[in-house]
Amino acid sequence: MLWGFQLEFRQSLRTKKLWVILGIMVLLYIPVFYIIKSIGGSEITVEGAMAFLIQFVTGMAGFFIGILALLMGATAINSEIEKGTLRVAMSKPLKRVGYIGGKFLAHSVVLFLALLLSTVVGTLGVVWLGAPLTAVLVRDVLLLNMLLLLAMVQLVALGYIISTLVKSSSSALGLALVLAFVLFLIMPNVVGYLTFKASMNNPNMGHDEYIELQKEYTTKYLFYVPTSQVGVITGDVSNTDGDLANVTYNGMPYAIKKNPANLGILIGLTLVYLGIGFYRFLRMDLR
């Protein structure tokens, strides 16, 4: 497993798409923090800053690194078959499961590092806005990273399935992009519309009830979108009416405990995707 890991880790860090996506993401952080500072950053509370950081990192990193994870997975095997490197590797005394396991581990580590970069930049931004760097902030940031990593790993595993089904890496890349578009943009909007429509049946529905309905719909109808599941969990990190100066901060442990079903979906579906992806790799013709 270690052999596949060290090869894939070095390869992944040299992939252009990794640095392009991370570069764009980090560049987008800068104007967002400037805008917040200019529209009243001086009034921001510690709780508000942390709530903002968690929501913001979930959104930005979830989207950009999510695409990266899907693309990484979708070209993990077929591109190696095209180049012939997989034939060279698998002609050596290595077990297939060890090789794909090492590859998966390397992808997970690279994604963790990408998330860490995103979180560090985000944390620096929040500190720049005036929030103190507390132990709670560090703990919650780490928990958020773990949660996001789980979502990213699920997308990598989904990518592996694509990679074992679609022979051409360019076709797989196209399919992964379409899938990313559907998963991150189309379906959440469709479900958002359905939630809104359902809420119209109850004219007396309050803000909290609406949020609960939104969570219910997201859990039910977006169970296959890992970033949406993370969104449901991080939604309980704080209670806010949209004003960063008026936030009740609950913390990540509270949010995770409150949403076991979403955490279960994240873990369960990841295992299912990994199982399918690994099984296909173990049985496929590497030609």
Partner: peptide
Amino acid sequence: RIGYMPEHATLWDFLTPVQTLDIIADAF
């Protein structure tokens, strides 16, 4: 106990020959 040289294959572009052989030797 086998050495295999494939047709129409390349090796890892980002590695040098020394690094390539080093990593292949690790597999053995």
